[in-house]
């Protein structure tokens, strides 16, 4: 199987609003994908479509080569953890973790026990009485210990504090090294998770605006800084995310710059600095927003 997930012109409308707009994706097995985007960009809807929790308006979805909708054979190999996961009122954390082995075929109880200790989850407290962070930790434990072939995290760690988030990233990194699987997770905290991501998909207004290998992205992009005229001249022949001026100086992020390009920048007296994944994504999303605004004004 070449791709674990494929979508073709996938669209989801809620009334007149298009939450996911003609999305075509192909995700390879055994990689960690970051689904990035602003609030309301369509990340959660896309994930719900991929897991059969939501129904597409049009387009096609294939997960493990089949439609995920009402497909036990496909869903059996998926674990989808989201921050908004609801739990029965009477459930304590121990009920969630006692039920999970019956839902996930690769469940590792010993590992789950270790994670419970790591995240210090109060097992005998009702889920609705847990803090947001503790609820997130329960979700993270289920997501990690399920060892599903395809694991989707929809910001399940949003409530975790910085120490717990770091523990989550480290646990995920260590576990997928030992038990390779495909992970797709959405996050706002791009820099924090940057080391984890092998591939980045950015979504804005329901459309994919970036779908690229993380290393290639990082290696190819650079910020050029120097006299405004030189920067403008340099970026005029290249794809960039706009020029930011400060007096007579300016900076711009060039999204694709090979060795000869870098040499040309230096020759033009410009300084080159690396671009973080977060800056790059923000720049892409910003450019998309600008385009959307212009389109709206024109309309």
């Amino acid at each position: 199987m070449k791709h674990i997930i494929t979508t073709e012109a996938l669209t989801k409308r809620f009334g007149s609003e298009e939450a996911v707009s003609s999305v075509s994706l192909a995700l390879e097995p055994g990689r960690v994908y970051g689904l990035l985007g602003r609030n309301g960009a369509g990340k959660s809807t896309l994930m719900r479509l991929l897991t059969g929790q939501e129904f597409a308006t049009s387009g096609a979805i294939r997960v493990f080569g089949e439609s995920p909708v009402e497909n036990a054979g496909v869903l059996d190999r998926i674990c989808f953890i989201k921050e908004t996961q609801s739990y029965p009122d009477a459930f304590k954390a121990r009920h969630v973790l006692a039920n999970a082995p019956h839902f996930f075929r690769n469940w590792d109880q010993v590992y789950a026990d270790r994670l419970v200790d790591l995240f210090e989850v109060p097992m005998h407290r009702h889920m609705k009485k847990l803090s947001r962070g503790q609820r997130s930790a329960v979700g993270a434990i289920v997501g990690l210990a399920s060892r599903a072939e395809l694991t989707l995290f929809d910001e399940p760690y949003a409530g975790l504090d910085a120490v717990a988030r770091r523990a989550f990233y480290d646990a995920l990194l260590a576990d997928i090294a030992e038990h390779p699987r495909t992970v797709l997770f959405s996050t706002h905290l791009i820099d924090e998770a940057a080391d984890l991501l092998e591939h980045v998909v950015a979504i804005s207004h329901g459309r994919i605006v970036l779908d690229a290998d993380a290393d290639e992205l990082r290696g190819a992009a650079a910020t050029v800084a120097g006299p405004a005229a030189a920067v403008e001249e340099f970026v005029s022949r290249r794809e960039s995310t706009g020029v930011r001026r400060l007096g007579g100086l300016a900076t711009a992020t060039v999204t694709s710059l090979d060795d000869s390009g870098k040499a040309a920048a230096r020759a033009a007296g410009l300084d080159l600095t690396e671009v973080s994944l977060q800056d790059l994504v923000i720049a892409r999303l910003g450019a998309d927003l600008e385009r959307a605004d212009k389109k709206e004004v024109a309309a």
Binding site: D76, R94, D108, Q109, A112, M123
Partner: peptide
């Protein structure tokens, strides 16, 4: 910290999805 009771994930018939739903409902007997 109390860890959950150690158990091996059930397989085959013992891991029926319908059975898992019944168990879920009976979690708080």
């Amino acid at each position: 910290m109390t860890a959950v009771e150690t158990a091996v994930a059930p397989t085959g018939l013992g891991r029926s999805r319908i059975g898992a739903v019944v168990r879920m409902h009976l979690s708080t007997p």
